[in-house]
Amino acid sequence: MNKIDLKRHAGDQPDPLEQANPMRLGTRLRLARQTRGLTLKALATAADCSESLLSKIENGKASPSLPMLHRLVEVLGTNIGWMFEETDSEEGIVFRAGTRPLISLDPLRRGEGISLERVIPYSPGHLLQCNIHHIEAGGESAGPIQHQGEEVGYVLAGAVELMVGERTFKLSVGDTFVFKSELPHWYRNTGTERASIFWVNTPATF
């Protein structure tokens, strides 16, 4: 259950290729590590994670947290988008309601209750990263995280608490935010119902 869970909205049949994505993530991570001549131990040390966990991730048996992914790609000189890179839909412009896949990281750890609905696919040529963050009641993002770029968000549903640097903001439906990604940031659902945030990052990192 601690693998990356890729699924479509209820009522849609899962795509077998999407179900294979956890293994693809591990394969790409191993490829990037070997291309740079790093041993498993060397990468684990540089990214501040355990060698055993990294081995499980490379074999598709475990999923990394978002902060860990950021550390790994920084050491490897790549970006998180490349780890999840996929081909655009046939049209490559319009992505219909009910067809956008959801991705959940760390279902058994601190990111519990968080799923990302992809608005822009992880594929070459996109300057923006855009997801709808769905946060179940009591859910919170793993963090804080920091990276290059800028963040913009719009609260679609629910009540959330956004922490940026040393400041905390209570947000509700219709509230928006913008901040530099270099500032430590994370969030949590403070309500009793599911919250959703339309979230854009630039440049694309995930």
Rank of each mutant, 00 (worst) to 15 (best):
E18T: 13
G125Y: 01
A137R: 10
L69G: 04
R109L: 13
L171G: 04
R36T: 00
E150D: 07
S50Y: 05
L54I: 03
L40K: 00
F169D: 07
V173Y: 11
L162F: 07
A204W: 00
R110F: 08
G81C: 05
G158A: 09
Q34W: 08
S115P: 05
V152I: 10
E18K: 15
G92T: 08
S181P: 07
E151F: 02
E58I: 03
K61E: 08
V178L: 15
H147R: 03
H9S: 14
I80R: 09
I103D: 01
P203N: 08
E182P: 05
L116P: 02
L25T: 00
Y122I: 01
G98P: 02
G191W: 09
I197T: 01
K61A: 00
V119H: 03
L17Q: 12
I135T: 13
A46F: 11
L66Q: 04
R194L: 10
S172Q: 15
I197V: 11
A42N: 09
F206M: 06
I197M: 11
A142Q: 02
T192A: 14
D106L: 06
I114N: 04
I93P: 04
Q146E: 10
T205K: 14
A137T: 09
G111K: 11
F177I: 07
G138R: 11
M68S: 12
T190V: 13
I132R: 12
E150R: 10
R118E: 05
P16H: 05
A47T: 03
H9A: 13
G149C: 10
T78G: 02
I80H: 06
I93L: 13
V155A: 06
F198G: 02
M23A: 15
L31A: 10
A195G: 06
T176S: 15
R100W: 07
A10F: 14
E18Q: 15
S55M: 05
A204D: 03
A42Q: 10
H9N: 14
P64S: 09
M83Q: 00
L76I: 01
P67I: 01
K7D: 10
R100S: 00
I93N: 09
N2T: 01
W186N: 08
E91V: 14
R100P: 02
N189P: 10
R188G: 03
H133M: 15
L116Y: 13
K56Q: 14
N79Q: 14
S65Y: 05
D48N: 14
I93W: 14
C130E: 13
T192L: 15
V73M: 08
G143A: 11
S123E: 00
S63I: 08
Q34L: 13
F177S: 06
I135V: 15
V200C: 13
I197Y: 04
A137Y: 09
G26S: 04
P121I: 09
E136T: 15
I114G: 04
I93D: 12
N2W: 05
T27L: 04
I57S: 02
N201I: 15
N79A: 13
L38G: 01
A42I: 01
P16V: 15
N59M: 11
K7N: 10
N189G: 08
T190W: 13
E182K: 15
D175A: 02
P64V: 07
H70D: 09
H185T: 02
L6P: 06
D48P: 07
